[in-house]
């Protein structure tokens, strides 16, 4: 089966090359500064700034949701999410956005939210369980 082994080695080499290519498809989680610098599509982690204006008016444009996000470096920028406001948005603990910087705003085409588990503490859980 020597031929097969040669092929196996060849395939492994191809796989390794492709996996290394994966490296170029990945990026570190960016912040606003890095995103502005690169100008490319990045993923960015941050938290929702509750006391800044949050605009979602489906009657005007159902695919325009604007809010402020504080990235891990502490910078706050306006984010335009190109879709409706997600369920439980206010409850999110952290937000992962996919998008790019355009001028001072971050244009996001995808969002993933990390929501806290249903009960923050046991007391609340018991309270919830005993309420009918």
């Amino acid at each position: 089966m020597k031929k097969s082994y040669l092929l196996a080695v060849l395939l492994v080499v191809i796989a390794v090359v492709l996996l290394l290519q994966t490296g170029s498809a990945t990026s570190e989680y960016a912040n606003f500064a890095k995103a502005a610098e690169s100008g490319d599509k990045v993923q960015l982690v941050g938290t929702y700034v509750k006391d800044k204006p949050t605009i979602y008016d489906p009657l005007t444009d159902p695919n325009y949701f604007s809010f402020f996000l504080e990235d891990l470096a502490g910078t706050e920028r306006e984010v335009i999410l190109l879709m409706g406001k997600p369920q439980d948005f206010e409850m999110s603990e952290s937000i992962v956005l996919t998008g790019r910087m355009q001028d001072e705003r971050f244009i996001a085409s995808d969002i993933q939210m990390k929501c806290p588990s249903k009960y923050k503490d046991e007391e609340e859980m018991i309270k919830n369980l005993t309420e009918s």
Partner: peptide, 15 residues
């Protein structure tokens, strides 16, 4: 900070 696939679907589809 951790690495992440920027666009997983496109990445997988390509291969």
């Amino acid at each position: 900070d951790g690495l992440t696939l920027t666009d997983p679907e496109a990445h997988h589809n390509r291969f």
